[in-house]
Design a protein around this nucleic acid. Structure first.
Lengths: 190, 190
DNA sequence: GTCATAATGTGACTTAGGTCACATAGCTAC
DNA sequence: GTAGCTATGTGACCTAAGTCACATTATGAC
């Protein structure tokens, strides 16, 4: 499927734009093809854009003082990724984003998103609901962290995104679950 | 300060409404005075409203199968609270909300919020940015869960909301941090 | 005030998960 | 093919936090 079509279907789930409105909406996005391992946002960068995934898979992650990596999000097709704290507050990135596989994205700048939201009430509606859903998902994950042990968090993740199992090395899944790769590896030990 | 003034100042931080627009905006809110311990949303309820805190303090929480409580959020003045999953998706509440102290809130129904967002582009802008900020905060808390131990999470919380220390029993703070009250109590043991 | 209840502290023991070390297995490049 | 990565598994041991039990201290209600 074409990039435009993928985004159109995605947007239509949350907001109803006319074809003309969507053409305008789409005109602000820039397509980028990225290679496995390529870094999109690096800690310390000025963050200008957010990224809509067309194909492939991104991860957004944080590396602490002990060089331990924690994954905030895997971004599969039709997901968005960025360092939203840096993007919204015009601060330097503390979160990095890179490509787990070869990935195609549509890139939207902060300024263009605000312009779109300003000019198209529908676009603002779309972005409000996109974030509403992200907010609910983040809170669910928080609860899951507090309430569930590693094993159920792992099973929950695989149920939600079965495709991850094949694409993503276990060490990254461990970094998403917030445990060591050894612990994850031992989950299904006899 | 009057309810209307409190909300007006809060809204003005994220969106610029004319006085007339804000009068209209405000007309959708209903003031409620609640007693300490009073339950606003109970697990299993149909969730109709979100609540803007004028004074006092709410908590939103989840109780698991072992009857263990986890606190998603303390809502202090100018904070919003609800079971947003239930509110947005029209499902029954899995999160409860009640009053830690006597509390005054402004109540806004889901339908009225959508009506407002529809009729007033500015209102939609406000709610988009409110959730954007909530989304960023939720992700920060997630990272803190993964990266930090109980002691630093506790200190982080007290630095962010020093007033909590006096208002809220330690057992609730433990439930927010996702640890047992015993562990929290032992943090500053000799 | 006094009785009851809620909140907090603390000891003893258990347990999930972390850490370090090393082994094994797959890929990838040449 | 083989040398060198990267991913994964697993044993041994350590540690943070949980659990249970009981003591102590506040806080209200009457």
């Amino acid at each position: 499927m074409e990039a435009k079509e993928i985004l159109k279907i995605h947007v239509a789930k949350l907001a109803s734009l006319t074809d003309d409105q969507f053409d305008y909406f789409f005109s602000f996005f820039k397509k980028q093809s990225l290679k496995k391992g390529q870094v999109i946002i690096n800690e310390g960068d000025v963050v200008d854009c957010e990224y809509f995934v067309l194909s492939g898979c991104l991860k957004s992650f944080f590396i602490n003082d002990d060089l331990k990596m924690f994954i905030l999000q895997f971004a599969m097709p039709t997901w968005w990724a960025s360092d939203y704290n840096a993007l919204y507050n015009h601060t330097r990135a503390t979160i990095s984003v890179d490509c787990i596989t070869d990935t195609e994205v549509l890139c939207l700048s902060n300024a263009d998103r605000e312009k779109l939201c300003d000019e198209l009430h529908n676009a603002e509606h779309f972005f409000r609901w996109r974030t509403n859903k992200g907010y609910v998902a983040a809170n669910k994950r928080l609860l899951s962290f507090m309430n569930n042990n590693v094993k159920s968090r792992y099973e929950e993740l695989l149920k939600l995104y079965p495709e991850l199992y094949n694409i993503v090395p276990k060490s990254l899944i461990a970094a998403y679950l917030g445990v060591s790769r050894e612990t994850l590896s031992r989950l299904y030990q006899a």
